[in-house]
Design a protein around this nucleic acid. Structure first.
Lengths: 234, 234
DNA sequence: AACTATCGATAATG
DNA sequence: CATTATCGATAGTT
């Protein structure tokens, strides 16, 4: 499907290309005889929902719409008390996440000592700080994971999620805990920096919802990570 | 910020603040030449972004806005080629998901044998089918996981996610695989029905993006789950 | 990045 | 659930 052809998808089939050059724009300005509407731009125009080919335009759209999407999610969260998590992978492999889910799981992990007080023999209790000695198997750097084990990893991840989810539901404690299951876990984990070291052009950004505050939604909660100021490639 | 009263109509027009400093924008407002239109409704009114107290109204808003959110996500996906996953928990505990992520991970897991072909000594190759004998630790039912181990589960899940993400990035194979990491795993896993059995009034709905087709977005891809009419799990 | 005109989403109503 | 009028998001431009 090339440009210039409406795929007849729905809604308002009247697709009009834009030969429009608003004469008010750059023509000589004979003063505004009628200062009614000095149109300076065409304003928003209808676009077809299909892949944007031009890179720069696509990047801009991605930024704008991702922002809008997260804002909507934040509003939905506040208005309806729903718990929402969003992960977005850009084409270039950047990860943007939204959600309290991440925060909640962070909180859970950080104060797991308090939450889970009675454990038999382990010393998980002081898990607040990193346990640098004797990494557990899941803490190994991924380089050590051969490709053949990928499947198991996947399986483990899937199974873990299921188990966790079930378990948490069974506990049926406060509902906030129910939400913080697996969804947005790995961006958090990637925050440690390990991942950033390995992946050249991958960054993680996070967007926090408004539920921490009251009803406004936080605009600039994006936290860059990994490399300082890598601008470019969406 | 206090929100004491619960008025019948959550409309607080008095607090309306105009962040726009351009006077031209005000000119756009339709000049109210008395009443020449028999207005049948007030139309959309501005609402404050705060929790909606009334249940029925909140439910309606949740439906509408969740629909809108998923639609936006679908558009973003198509327009920019981004891969997006969304999980939404309603207050009642219902789960709604959006995203190709779930589908992709399903596919990956089902054909992991094909995907990971060259392994030295193991026999992961035939991992396509379930290994019913000798369940791995992550396959144990969660009932057997004592509460004290919850922390480890959480930790494992987190670590696994990070490792997986890194690993997949390193492989840098086809991009579809990159996307199917951990995000929307557990709804899939919950498909087994175990969770549904335990939780009385919890259901999982899924919303699929449009990337399967061309540029339209699928409206009614919600698939109920857990109970009888399971029409295939792909 | 900021602005503006327009389009799309949706609160209120039937 | 359909309609409508308004508000909010955003495509195009500077």
């Amino acid at each position: 499907m090339e440009d210039g052809e409406a795929s007849a998808i729905t809604c308002v089939p009247s697709k009009e290309q834009t030969p429009l050059r608003n004469p008010n724009l750059l023509l000589n300005q004979p003063k505004e005889t009628k200062q009614k509407t000095p149109k300076t731009t065409k304003g928003r125009q209808k676009i077809e929902i299909k892949e944007i080919k031009e890179v720069s335009r696509r990047q801009v759209t991605f930024s704008k719409r991702r922002y809008g999407l997260f804002k909507k999610a934040a509003e939905l969260n506040v208005l309806c008390g729903a718990h929402i998590g969003i992960i977005t992978f850009s084409r270039a492999g950047r990860i943007y996440t939204f959600g309290e889910v991440k925060t909640l799981i962070d909180k859970y992990l950080s104060k797991s000592k308090v939450t889970l007080s009675s454990h038999p023999g382990g010393d998980v209790g002081n898990g607040g700080e990193d346990d640098e000695n004797g990494l557990m198997w899941w803490e190994r750097a991924v380089e050590s994971v051969p490709e053949e084990e990928m499947e198991e990893y996947m399986k483990a991840l899937s199974g873990l999620s299921a188990n966790l989810c079930t378990r948490i539901y069974q506990m049926s404690g406060d509902r906030t805990v129910q939400m913080n299951v697996p969804a947005l876990t790995y961006p958090t984990a990637m925050m440690d920096g390990k991942v950033a070291m390995d992946i050249e052009n991958t960054m993680v950004r996070n967007y926090e919802g408004p539920n921490a505050g009251n009803n406004g939604y936080i605009e600039n909660a994006m936290i860059p990570f990994g490399f300082p100021s890598q601008s470019g490639r969406q």
